[in-house]
């Protein structure tokens, strides 16, 4: 078993969980998340992500293993570890009949904050998440995206050092998702460690520095985002042209394969280890004017699927 660095935000060792119905959700998880990291925990449905979060938050009891939050065991230092934690669950779990402001202020009370301080904190985070105008509305009147933001505001009201978000942008429209990304990045820059589970791999690639992939209760990949992306052997780039393509560009290189898509676009497949400056030079020489370029598939998506298969 690996030694534990007490500076880690989270250290998990030998974590297993078998539910009452016999389903083994976790089969010996070892995981470290460094302080101030922006960490992605990815995996297909039922892989064990929410079980890990449930055990960290004490809603689920581990069958065996230990979890330390900032060097303190969650089983023995309940108060200290819970004070450091903010949890944003996957499912909406606030009262549908209470007012938005009351939900956040009440949560502050559970952490020993009262009166003006609780109100100030509630205002601060409701404003940051664009919910201040809705503070007197019943929570059931909020849209799906607003409900998710309310759960983030509620999780932040005691200003935890570690924020865990279980699919926070599920069902949230693109514009709102981007604004939530910016907010989370700002939080992380200000020192909050963030652990994120998500199905949007683009989200993990954009936000997270380190990543673990879990499948069938086991960690199958645990590395930095950069190293993981470097594992991709080939990439396919799509080029959009300014003018109609009469003939497909020719590349005198066996590593490069080129295929037409339509009259104004084509795709080029090549090794990830090489630079793409030469492609532009070749295209310029052949008089092909490029309007835009993009990856054909999400790179992380390819790696995610190959990790699960292997």
């Amino acid at each position: 078993m690996q030694t534990i660095d007490p500076r880690n935000a989270i250290s998990i060792r030998g974590l297993t969980k078998t539910y009452a119905n016999g389903f083994q959700a976790l089969k010996g998880i070892d995981l470290d998340v460094k302080e101030n990291d922006f960490f992605a925990l990815l995996g297909p449905n039922g892989a064990g992500k929410s079980t890990i979060i449930g055990i960290i938050s004490t809603l689920v009891r581990a069958s065996s293993g230990t979890i330390q939050v900032f060097g303190q065991n969650v089983a023995t230092h309940v108060y200290e570890t819970k004070l450091s934690l903010g949890i944003v669950p996957q499912e909406i779990n606030f009262s549908q009949f209470e007012k938005v402001g009351d939900i956040v202020i009440t949560q502050a009370g559970y952490y020993g904050l009262r009166g003006e301080l609780a109100k100030q904190r509630a205002e601060k985070y409701l404003r940051k998440l664009d919910l201040w105008e809705k503070r007197d509305n019943r929570s059931r009147m909020l849209s799906g995206g607003m409900k998710r933001r309310l759960m983030i505001a509620r999780a932040l009201v005691h200003e935890p050092r570690l924020l865990i978000l279980d699919e926070p942008t599920a069902g949230v429209d693109i514009e709102l998702r981007r604004s939530m990304w910016e907010f989370l990045q700002e939080l992380n820059r200000n020192g909050t460690t963030i652990i994120l589970t998500t199905h949007y791999l683009e989200e993990a690639e954009s936000l997270c520095r380190n990543i673990a992939i879990i499948n069938q209760g086991q960690i199958v990949e645990n590395t930095s985002m950069r190293k993981l992306l470097d594992k991709l052997a080939r990439q396919t780039l799509i080029f959009d042209t300014c003018d109609e393509l009469k003939t497909l560009p020719a590349f005198n290189d066996s590593d490069i394969q080129c295929n037409a898509i339509d009259s104004h676009s084509f795709e080029v497949s090549l090794s990830t280890s090489r630079d793409i400056n030469g492609l532009y030079a070749t295209l310029s020489d052949q008089g092909v004017l490029i309007k835009g370029m993009r990856n054909k598939t999400n790179r992380l998506e390819e790696l995610f699927l190959s990790s699960l298969k292997s």
């Binding site: 004490t58 819970k82 949890i87 669950p89 499912e91 779990n93 509620r154």
Partner: peptide
């Protein structure tokens, strides 16, 4: 039923 008991259970109360 609404799972809002989790608000208290995850807190240090």
């Amino acid at each position: 039923f609404q799972r809002c008991i989790e608000e208290i259970l995850v807190s240090p109360v």
